[in-house]
Every structure is written in structure tokens, then in C-alpha cells.
Design a protein around this nucleic acid. Structure first.
Lengths: 335, 335
DNA sequence: ACAGTTGTTGAAATCGTTTACAATTATATC
DNA sequence: GATATAATTGTAAACGATTTCAACAACTGT
């Protein structure tokens, strides 16, 4: 058991200088084969692993990217996290994952931690509140890519989903099927996604010239319990002929409420949701749903970020890119 | 925009030495109030953030712990990840999360990355394959805590769940309810959890003196599709009067299969599962399930690890601790 | 007035790498 | 065989913090 095993010890054992060991470690071309073999042998025998902390300090690069998302426990964000990690690995980067919990304070504190740790770039699903600090980070050379949500007035790459249009499409389809009293369980209106999906609901009604009756829209918080609760409230409305829920967690709760009330889908009530979780296609009939390209969302963001990092284009040289991915409406038997 | 902003610049602006700035940064007691104010002001004005890379190098501590789990996408492991992160934050540590994907090669490569990055400790849900390298890490002073699974012959702290006993309890309950042909969808038999839950199934039958008929046990892979497929196979058996599934993902698939076949729970068939996902209590009747203390599993492991880190007891000084948490059987209407 | 504290500071070594540069040796060219 | 060129190595200076040590100032009690 070696108390300390550093490049110097390796150099000593191999009878060369630290510079040469370093060259071997980094696959420099001009090292004599014999020397390289000797060094590699020592490395193998001693289980030496380079100290990345020292390396990062000297190189002023950590080859790591920070990811701040609201919550790994959500299926949506965990897929994004996975996508980013996969993309990072593909590019020989490592990731540091942070659960921002949709709290601006936590977000800020994580941004600082990531800055302290000199990550080479950051992927963020922003709360929308820390524009100044984000601006500062970008101007000091740490590229940031926003994902799923945006911060107005911030000059950086962004990857979004066309929430509004996709949501409009669902509702238009339902209206054209003849539904006239479509209940909607909306998400929190301080989040872009919440706002846009609700907008789409109104857009479709307006386009089709169908009025939205009083009490058809209820506000939820994107969590499972609120989905069940709001659904129960809506189902008391005798005129209700369909239910559209703005994310999958709330839809889980709503689905249960419908079943418990003994209603049949689609005979008694139409049902559709934003998001396409596993169970949507497993139940009978399948639930019509909007499938977001979640994985692509994450990997696109990561690729964008990595490109900016390796280009050294740091932050402001190149124009920010804004990519909007298409969510797809998948028709199943529920509506 | 400062091209480089380091402690030296801050010292210069504040008219003091780097040592003093460092002392302010680290809340040393003996700095004159006036000096401290001056330094803090400069720090605020310039948005200076300490370079943690340099700090870590000098301190030979990173205040970070690595977490290698099979997959953030699984509800089980994402909860563990969250628990570990929460515990880490509570102790002012940061975490590096890695998706080992149950592959020994990926696990090894992540272990090396974490070692390179000099994390202060590692939490691992092991594949069981890299004992030598794990041993080496421990002996070189990096404490490791195993979670959910174990590696035989490895001297380190471990936090497990009593899979076997909990599984036995479920099956005993079902047998005492009078079920005599309980189908079981098992998990992969190269994983400790898969093995133990199956053992529990056999244990209960043996204890109660009930024979396990041919074809009642099917092997799955813990994923949703295999749950549906194995369930369909089992449901062809006319004698089958109950179904017990060894994790929640497979149970999701199995539940769908039962519903699609038009069977009623519990009138036509009893149903129970290991794991207690949200939907188990939301459907009617609720599904009897084994709730694992997942969050506690993660936070216990993290606390154990942090304690070993800050005690400086590194690795082998103190005896390894083995903690077995109790999973609880929750009776609902499905059985 | 003096020694002994206590509080407050700065100079310089250190952590473990990478890398610019110089130095040396081997090979090719004429 | 002299010279130019290329291959191979080593020396030492970074990177940006922390921390040891010594120095100095301001008190304290005698």
C-alpha cells in the first residue's frame, strides 16, 4: 500500500523524468518504444492512476459538464440526464448532476458550485430567475445550454419542444372528433411548459370556433396527486365528455380517478395526455398521447454544448442557436 | 470581463496578500474586521469564485463522493441517487453520479474515473465482478459503501434489504389465504436481489408444506416487457389462482396482461408484487406490495460513507458495518 | 521599560500534473 | 566526415489555491 503514488514516483521507478511519464500518459508520439514499455509496466504494476485534479488545474480544463435539472425522480428529467450523460461519454466528457428542484436559490447555489469546480460548460433547465448570474457565467467563458425551458433575454443556445403547437394539435383532434366539453388539467403557470400547453388548448378552441365553457380548466402542479384531485373535480361536471391532462404524472392520477368512478374510455369519456409514459400504450385501449423527443432533447443540448466547448468558441463569438424539436401526437383508442 | 481572476488578483485589488484572502475565504478567526470587509467587497464586486480544482489539489480532499448505480432511469435507483445527493448536501459534499448499467466493464471504468478524480469515497451498487480493483481502492484509502447488493469477501460497509424474508412473508400470507397455485415472475438470477426474492418464494412454500407445481416460476429481467410476456405465459395455466411479481416494472407489465385478459383482481386472480410504486395504491383495489425503504437505503449508505470519510478512518481501521433494512409488506385488496 | 501574550499579516513552500524550452542523441544528406 | 534534421529526453516554470512559519504590532501586567 503506497502512501503516495504520483508521477514522480512512477518516473523514479521507471528511471525517467516526470515529463516522459506524462508523455506516455498522454500518448505523445515521440517516445521511444522501449521507454514507453518500461513506463507502462510500472504503471500497471503499481495501479497508478493519474491525479485528474492536478491535471485539470494545469490544463485549465476539466472535461466535465454540469447538469442542473429539476429532479432526477421525474421520468422526464431523468431521461434528459441519461441522454446528456451518454452524449458526454461519447465525447469523453464526464457529467456532474444537480437537482435544482425548481428553486431559484438552489439553482444559483449549484451554478456557483459548478463554476467553482470549473466545469467546461453547463446544461440547465432554468427556473427563469437567475439571469444576471447566468449572463456573468457566459461572459466569463463558460458556455451554457438551456433545455426544455428558456430565460428571456439570455444569449445562449437553447433546445425546446413545440409545446404549444403539439398541445393545439391534440385538442384540435379532439374537437374535430366532436368533443365539445374537454376538461383540461393544466400545469403550473410559472413554468414555460405549463403556460404553453394551456395556450395550445385555447388556440385550438379559438381556431375551431368552439367556446371554452366555465370551469373546464383546472390548475395542477404536474404531480400525481393533483392530477387525481383535479380530475375528480372535473368529473362532477355532467357535461364533461373528454379529459386532456398536461403531463404524464397528473395523467396517472386522473386515469385512476376515471377508473374508480367506473367510467369507460372512450365510451363514457375521451382521454388524452401530454407525455407518453410506458403505461399509456400498455392499458386497453391505449391512451392517445403527445410523445416528446425527450432523449433527443437531452442529447441535442449536450452535443450543442460540447461543440461550443471544443470549438473554444466559448460564449459570445458565435450566434446563439435555438432548436425547437417536434413533439408528436400519437393516436390510440382513448379518444 | 476578466480574462483571469484568481486569488492573486483579488489580493492585489484589496491590497493584501493571497494568504489573507485565503483566510477570509475560509473564515479564519484572526483577520481584522476592516481587512475582511475590504476583501469581501472585492470578492463581491468581481464575482470571484474560488477555484475548487486548485483548492482540492492543495487540500488533497475533494469533498465529493462518487455514486455508481445501475441506471438513473429506474425508479429504484433514481430514488437512491436522490437520497445520496440529499445526504451529501447535508454534509457539504457534492456527488458525481455514474450509470454503471450493470456492466462490470463500465463499472470498472467508472471506478477508475472516480479514482482519478480523487473522490473522497464511493457508493456502489456492485455487479459483483470487480473485487480486486475494489479491494485495491479500499486499501489505498478510498472508502466504499455497497448498497442494495454485495460483493462477497470484500471488506467494506454494506447496506442491504432483507429481500428473502420480505418475499417469504408475502408468499406465506398468500398461502395462508388459501392460494395454492401462485405464479412467480422472478428477476435475473445473477443478481443478489433476484436470487433472494426467489428463495423467499420457495422458503414460504417449504415452511407451509405446500408444493411448488411445475411451471409456476418464470424468469424475467426486471423490465416491463418481460413482466407482460411472462404473465401471459403463466395465465395460460388454468390452475393459476394468484400471481406474485418480483419487482414493480415487471408488475406493471403483468398487471396490464391481467386486465387485458379481462380478469378481475382479486376475484379471478390474486396479485402482489415486490416494490411499491405510486400506482399500486392508486388502482382499485390497491395492490398488496412490499415497500422497500429505498430512500433510507440511499441515505444510510451515504451517512455511513461520510462518517468514514470525516473520521479519517479511511478504510480498514474500523470493522466494516453491515446494515440490513426491513422491507414491509403492505396488505391491500388485491390478494 | 520589559517580557510575554495575543492578534494580524505576508513570504514562500507545497499539492501533482503539463508543457515550453533546451539539451542531447540518432539519423539522413551531401 | 561534417552538417542539417529529426527523434527523444530532461529541467524548470507554470496552474491557483492552502498552510507553515516567521515577523510585526498592539496590548497586558509587572
Amino acid at each position: 500500500m503506497h502512501r503516495k503514488l504520483n508521477i514522480e514516483k512512477v518516473a523514479e521507478y521507471a528511471g525517467v523524468s516526470t515529463a516522459t511519464v506524462s508523455r506516455v500518459l498522454n500518448n505523445y508520439p515521440f517516445v521511444k518504444d522501449e521507454t514507453r514499455r518500461k513506463v507502462l509496466q510500472v504503471i500497471r504494476e503499481t495501479n497508478y492512476q493519474v491525479n485528474a485534479v492536478a491535471r485539470n488545474l494545469r490544463r485549465k480544463k476539466t472535461h466535465s459538464i454540469g447538469v442542473i435539472i429539476s429532479n432526477v425522480l421525474s421520468s422526464f428529467y431523468s431521461v434528459i440526464a441519461k441522454a446528456v450523460e451518454d452524449a458526454a461519454i461519447r465525447n469523453k466528457f464526464s457529467t456532474v448532476l444537480c437537482n435544482g428542484g425548481d428553486s431559484p436559490e438552489k439553482e444559483l447555489s449549484y451554478l456557483k458550485v459548478l463554476h467553482e469546480n470549473r466545469v467546461d460548460g453547463i446544461i440547465l433547465s432554468p427556473t427563469g430567475k437567475n439571469r444576471d448570474y447566468l449572463s456573468f457565467l457566459i461572459s466569463s467563458g463558460i458556455p451554457i445550454t438551456l433545455v426544455d425551458r428558456t430565460v428571456k433575454g439570455l444569449q445562449c443556445d437553447t433546445v425546446l419542444v413545440n409545446n404549444r403547437e403539439a398541445s393545439r394539435e391534440v385538442v384540435r383532434y379532439m374537437l374535430r372528433q366532436g368533443y365539445r366539453n374537454i376538461g383540461f388539467i393544466a400545469g403550473p403557470q410559472d413554468r414555460l411548459t405549463g403556460i404553453e400547453r394551456l395556450q395550445g388548448y385555447y388556440d385550438a378552441h379559438e381556431n375551431e370556433g368552439v367556446p371554452v365553457h366555465e370551469g373546464l380548466v383546472k390548475m395542477g402542479d404536474f404531480l400525481i396527486e393533483s392530477g387525481k384531485a383535479r380530475a375528480i373535480e372535473l368529473l362532477e361536471n355532467g357535461r364533461l365528455d373528454a379529459l386532456y391532462v398536461s403531463n404524464s404524472d397528473m395523467a396517472t392520477g386522473a386515469y385512476v380517478a376515471i377508473k374508480e368512478k367506473g367510467l369507460r374510455i372512450p365510451e363514457d369519456i375521451g382521454f388524452a395526455m401530454f407525455d407518453d409514459p410506458d403505461w399509456a400504450s400498455l392499458v386497453t385501449p391505449g391512451v392517445s398521447a403527445v410523445r416528446q423527443p425527450v432523449y433527443t432533447l437531452g442529447s441535442t443540448a449536450a452535443d450543442l454544448l460540447v461543440k461550443r466547448i471544443v470549438d473554444g468558441s466559448g460564449a459570445i463569438d458565435k450566434e446563439p442557436v435555438k432548436i425547437v424539436l417536434e413533439a408528436r401526437f400519437i393516436k390510440r383508442g382513448s379518444v
